[in-house]
């Protein structure tokens, strides 16, 4: 656990990630102009998830921290996903 604590992420990595994030933003705005039906929400949320993942892994240091943090974050997101999926077991199948 200790040795990871001393990892310092360089400016270059951050700027690279930031550029990627900006590019993904541009992509999602561009894609939104096309009518893709039900897919548009999937794509929009997919891109947003990639962006969020990048922020968490690099900006929030999850990639370099102890494993226990990644497990925690996974559990938290899983819980939220389960809440949504189970609620939709009602709404998706209602007549």
């Amino acid at each position: 656990m200790k040795h990871n604590e001393n990892h310092i992420v360089g400016y270059g990595t951050y700027i690279f990630v930031w550029l990627t994030l900006v590019a993904l933003t541009a992509l999602t705005v561009t894609v939104a102009n096309f009518d893709l039906g039900g897919f548009s929400i999937v794509i929009a949320l997919g891109i947003a998830s990639i962006k969020a993942l990048l922020v968490m892994l690099i900006f929030m240091h999850l990639k370099f921290d102890d494993r226990v943090f990644r497990i925690f974050v996974f559990v938290a997101f899983l819980t939220l996903a389960i809440f949504i999926v189970l609620t939709f077991s009602d709404y998706s199948f209602i007549r």
């Binding site: 389960i82 009602d90 998706s92």
Partner: peptide, 18 residues
């Protein structure tokens, strides 16, 4: 315990799947 909440709602008219 976190996955069973809707058993408080069996009479509200949920889908059969739920």
């Amino acid at each position: 315990g976190s996955l069973v909440w809707a058993h408080h709602m069996f009479t509200v008219g949920m889908s059969n799947t739920a």
